[in-house]
Amino acid sequence: MNGVNGGAGRVVTVFGGSGFVGRYVVRALARDGWRVRIACRRPDLAFHLQPQGRVGQVMAVQANVRHPESVAAALRGASAVVNLVGILAESGAQKFSKVQAEGAKTIAEAAKAAGIDTLVHISAIGADASSASQYARSKAAGEAAVLAAVPTAVILRPSVIFGIEDQFFNRFATMARYFPAIPVVGAETKFQPVYVGDVAEAVAAAIAGRATAGAVYELGGPEVRSFAALIDFVLKVTERERHVAKLSFATGKLVASITSLFTKLSLGLFPTLLRMTADQVELLQHDNVVSAAAIKEGRTLQGLGVEPQSFEAIAPTYLYRYRKTGQYQAQRLEA
């Protein structure tokens, strides 16, 4: 996409811009000419993003979605807002309801008060107010709050997001490095992995006004695969022979209760790699793919002018490091 100077020096505040998706969004918006203000709890963790733009084009400010006054301050003088704040699991004060529902509401209401009607909110495929999953319910509540405050807002729901810093392919590649078996709950559940760069381009397109106001877009890549097939892909790329242990949802919930207990007893020191929650097991009972309705109505990446990129083409460019000899694989001497 060619949107250079689309921002014309105006300010866009990106909440959660220091995270995995954020760094790509910041780059895309800076390329389009926006002055990017990254609002996050730890501004020092966003300083590395300043080279994404020209001198002075990218700056970080302190803001916490649980503190409305800091959110309002981060929006002063801004023309547009992007909300990327979200969590995959609860921890301490970081609760789904506080971050993904109330936090989204705080940002949207602050945008309304500031007279800003250009807002892009990142949600997730599977957001559902009637879901048994707290994560899915909080995502749905966040969407509703955003559209209630700013009816012209654009909601983007990605499937699982992949990229060099992702917590999906990298997680299972790490497990394959250290363990003889990989447990998989919901082996037949389908995913449609979407490249983080494509999500960033979707954000940039929506901010530039190329999305339908008030619409909900679903973002997925060109391939739909089962969970088990994605694990097999990781094993093939990393050249690891591991047993894939397909667990039932009931067994998954039992394992989740055990790992959650260990996490509490260890005061949070239990390895993140081995953690699983009952809420995550609940989510795995439903496919995570773009709906037929979204495809028919053009509420997809293609509808935003973005051609989705394949995980089969991109993921191997960073998963190679999990092979026994990593980047030196081609130079390995045979015994």
Rank of each mutant, 00 (worst) to 15 (best):
A187K: 05
P158W: 10
G126D: 09
P183Q: 12
H67Y: 14
P180Y: 04
Q167R: 12
A176P: 04
D128K: 03
A73V: 07
P158N: 11
A129G: 11
P158S: 14
A80C: 10
A144V: 07
A111G: 02
A73Q: 13
Q192S: 02
G77I: 11
R177I: 00
N83I: 06
D166I: 10
A153I: 12
P68Y: 13
T152H: 11
G197I: 14
D198W: 07
E143S: 11
V154P: 05
V81H: 09
A153C: 13
H67D: 15
A140M: 10
A74L: 11
R76W: 12
L88T: 14
K98E: 15
A124C: 02
E201M: 12
Y178A: 05
R157C: 04
A173P: 14
M175L: 15
G115L: 01
V150W: 04
S97R: 15
T174L: 11
A148H: 08
V203M: 12
A200C: 11
L156F: 11
V185A: 10
A93E: 14
G197F: 10
V154N: 01
A80K: 07
D117W: 00
P193R: 00
A202M: 09
A101Y: 02
A124L: 00
K139P: 07
A104Y: 03
K98M: 07
E201G: 11
V85N: 03
A136Y: 12
I107E: 00
D128F: 02
S70N: 04
A80R: 11
V185L: 10
T106Y: 10
I155E: 02
L75E: 13
G103V: 08
E188L: 08
G86W: 00
A202V: 09
V194H: 01
E165I: 01
T118H: 10
L147E: 11
K95S: 13
F179C: 07
D166F: 07
R171I: 06
A136T: 08
V154H: 03
R76V: 12
P180A: 10
V71E: 09
Q192G: 05
S123V: 02
V81S: 08
I107T: 05
R157F: 01
K112A: 14
V120H: 02
G197Q: 10
I87G: 04
A187H: 09
I107V: 15
L156Y: 06
F191G: 02
A114L: 00
I87L: 12
I125D: 09
V184W: 05
A200V: 14
A173F: 13
H121G: 02
V81W: 07
V85A: 02
A114D: 03
S133D: 10
L156Q: 05
F169Y: 13
T152W: 01
V184K: 06
S97A: 15
T174C: 00
I155D: 03
Q167Y: 08
R171L: 15
P68M: 11
M175E: 13
L75Y: 05
S91V: 06
S70R: 04
G115S: 02
S70T: 15
A101P: 03
A132F: 04
A78Q: 12
I182Q: 05
N83G: 01
S133I: 06
I87A: 08
I155M: 08
